[in-house]
């Protein structure tokens, strides 16, 4: 297990380096866009002197590298800074939104991951049957539609025709957990429909792959039931690719939901990021970008660790 510890430490160090490079890329990217926060906010009403005053106050007239390193210095001291646009502390802006994003992602994951793995196992079990084809077709259709289309279909069916769920999910802190879950049901369904196919197909493929191995043949010759073979013999050996694809989809649930957030008016990080980019609010863009990047790096690391643990051959390399 020692080698695992070193591996994790190494990966965390590389992760931090990646984050710094990402922050630099984000900074450069936003710098390259035309205009700055002063021009973006004042828009058509900008006067040369008001834009100048704006820049003076926010120290935007300093050269870019100085602004970047000042920001980086503060960041390492745990100070995210304040939004350039409205002067609010970024921790306040991001904190509850990130919690909302995580809430939606968690609920969606709790539904999507078990559903897709069970469906994948069943599909492998009844391989090439009508059932297998139907669920493949259905899940592949839902992943092929753009998210907003799936979202609108769900709204039209479950919110406008049958008035069961609300069409907008503007949750707030006064709501109870149950009310919140009711409110986010439709975005959750949308996300689930979008991610199930990927995980389901991977589970199915991995299991079918294992099913061709000699030890499965052996098990079958012993007369074990097919279901038991798949669940107890094949699936544990198929875990590694499944974990990886689950990790990618979990990351997607956190960082890729901007469209779903907009359609359902859900107050998550995505909308904040989009607005901040369009207003050139660099510190907010940086903070949200880094959070997203950390989620990716963290989940990938977790996936690697889990696949090593689940696979004795990787656990004890020669």
């Amino acid at each position: 297990m020692d080698s695992l510890g070193t591996m994790v430490a190494k990966r965390v160090a590389f992760g931090l380096l990646t984050l710094i490079i990402i922050s630099l890329l984000i900074f450069l990217g936003v710098e390259l866009l035309p205009g700055d926060v002063a021009e973006a906010i004042l828009g058509q009403s900008a006067l040369p002197e008001t834009v100048e005053a704006f820049r003076r106050e926010l120290k935007l007239n300093l050269p870019p590298h100085i602004r970047y390193f000042t920001w980086l210095g503060d960041f390492f001291q745990g100070d995210f800074g304040t939004s350039l646009a409205n002067g609010r502390p970024i921790a306040d802006l991001i904190g509850w939104r990130f919690a909302n994003t995580m809430f939606l992602a968690t609920v969606a994951a709790l539904i999507a991951v078990p559903v897709s793995i069970i469906l994948g196992i069943l599909a492998a079990l009844y391989r090439n049957s009508l059932f297998d084809r139907i669920i493949s077709m259905v899940t592949l259709s839902t992943i092929s539609f753009p998210e907003f289309f799936v979202a609108y279909i769900l709204i039209a069916l479950l919110s406008v025709q049958l008035i069961i769920f609300p069409s907008i999910s503007n949750i707030n802190e006064q709501m109870s957990l149950l009310e919140k879950i009711h409110a986010i049901f439709l975005p959750c369904m949308t996300l689930t429909l979008v991610v199930v196919a990927h995980m389901m197909r991977q589970t199915r493929a991995a299991i079918i792959n294992i099913m061709a191995s000699p030890f499965i043949e052996m098990a079958r010759l012993k007369g074990i039931k097919r279901m038991r073979i798949i669940v107890l013999h094949a699936f544990p050996n198929a875990l590694s690719p499944v974990i990886n694809v689950v990790a990618i989809n979990l990351a997607y649930l956190v960082v890729g939901v901007v469209v779903v957030e907009v359609v359902f008016v859900y107050p998550g990080l995505g909308q904040l990021l989009v607005d901040s980019v369009s207003k050139r609010d660099i510190p907010v863009v940086q903070a949200s970008g880094l959070i997203f990047a950390s989620v990716y790096i963290g989940l990938n690391l977790l996936a690697d660790v889990l696949s090593i643990i689940s696979n004795p051959r990787l656990r004890n390399p020669r």
């Binding site: 919110s159 069409s167 503007n170 907009v262 359609v263």
Partner: peptide, 15 residues
């Protein structure tokens, strides 16, 4: 409530 998306606004009013 800030609702940028036109369809979301319309649906929310309808529902």
């Amino acid at each position: 409530i800030g609702i940028a998306d036109t369809s979301a606004r319309t649906n929310a009013l309808k529902t």
